[in-house]
Design a protein around this nucleic acid. Structure first.
Lengths: 225, 225
DNA sequence: CAATTCCTTTACAAAATCTTTATAACGCAA
DNA sequence: TTGCGTTATAAAGATTTTGTAAAGGAATTG
């Protein structure tokens, strides 16, 4: 993955700064929110690869934020907290937190736990390259080859194709695709999908008028084979 | 899931006992090993759903055990250790540990982290397919196969068939079917059902004039077998 | 800051699906 | 047999969904 994006939701500017410096120097792209609601909006409009969530937020408890996130967000959410009561930890983990670290944390450990969480979340059948007939997708290098020839895809086209490839054979609903590629708040923009599936077909199908790889499931979504 | 199995690899009998009692009272099945090699053998001969691994083992370091395990075992491995140096934690996590807890640990937290790890590992492996004779319905991939051949169904046809399959053998009333597929306000549109049961029969019945799979219960509804 | 690429949006044609109508067939009881 | 309620099938019409092109904006790049 090319620069995983991490969203920090924390009200303390100092901590955000500290995290930002550490994460960016380790090759992550960082987005920040100082309140829970701001964090939810940011996450919905552009889903990050991982979220660092503080429990002690001014506007809304982190537990609530976590619950709301988990209604649609299924990538890792790591909790950072000064609280270390067992009840807090258990509640967060049972509500879908991926991990729980108490402040002050050790940066090396935090980074290791982030690596671990991201590795696992990408581990959905992810052997770096996926091959489907004469189409090869290198998920590490982000290169797509058709009959050995590299194809030029835009960022969105690539993301869409990679998502299809990781779910070969399954029907992916419009909602799901939009949520994964554009974000939670784009669930109704099915026209985006039509446009991008169209351009993808032009690039990877033998005959775009009779697509074999990306087929339409009318009223439901698309399927990649 | 039917009683998840947990393998404990730890040389201290007291800790094993403590873990055993706690885990068993929470519905897990427990297997124990007091040395690293014994643990590897047990894991290989009967792979558990999760492994609790102590780092300070007499025969082999837990780090080594972890590496050997990870060559083939990809379910959760939680590390328990008296060591809490950052280097230890980072090394374990980077070698594929799912989580790392330092002794003494809090049982509630440990149980929550176990639940969390198991939940996540199960999320990636669900293929619920219903099989009725030579008809297969994959509810995740949304694929229907008859004698191994995929059949093309429209969204409504598929929904109807899936609903039948989930209620195999039962008579489903017109009202119920209409309510489930079209919605509450369509309960009187029984003609819809006739049309769609008709098209379904054409696609999945050997002889649509003498249906065996979807049979008519006159005046009541339909039954799927 | 100009050029290019990519994304978003709009418009319209084409295809697929659903709904409705019409008509025939079936089972059952009088 | 006839009549009635129910079911089956075909096919026309209506509606929804999809595909494609293209214009205008936004973002990126040199």
């Amino acid at each position: 993955m090319n620069k995983a994006e991490i969203l920090i939701i924390d009200d303390e500017a100092q901590i955000r700064k500290l995290l930002q410096i550490n994460l960016e120097s380790n090759g992550y792209k960082v987005i920040q929110a100082s309140t829970g609601n701001e964090g939810l909006v940011l996450a919905a409009s552009h889903p990050p690869d991982l979220i660092l969530l503080d429990i002690g937020l001014p506007d809304k408890s982190g537990h609530e934020i976590l619950k709301e996130l988990r209604e649609w967000y299924n990538k890792p959410v790591l909790i950072l907290s000064v609280q270390d009561t067992e009840a807090d930890i258990v509640s967060a983990l049972d509500n879908g937190a991926t991990d729980y670290l108490t402040k002050p944390f050790r940066t090396g450990e935090l980074l290791a736990r982030i690596r671990s969480a991201i590795r696992r979340s990408q581990n959905t059948e992810n052997d770096s390259t996926i091959t489907c007939g004469d189409l090869e997708i290198d998920l590490i290098a982000r290169i797509v080859k058709l009959k050995g020839e590299a194809i030029k895809l835009t960022a969105t086209e690539y993301n869409l194709l990679a998502l299809f490839a990781k779910n070969e054979g399954k029907v992916l609903t419009h909602q799901y695709l939009l949520k994964e590629i554009w974000g939670y708040s784009y669930q109704t923009e099915t026209q985006y999908l039509r446009v991008f599936v169209g351009t993808l077909r032009k690039k990877i199908e033998e005959n775009p008028n009779n697509p074999q790889r990306i087929t339409t499931e009318s009223g439901v979504g698309y399927r990649f084979q």
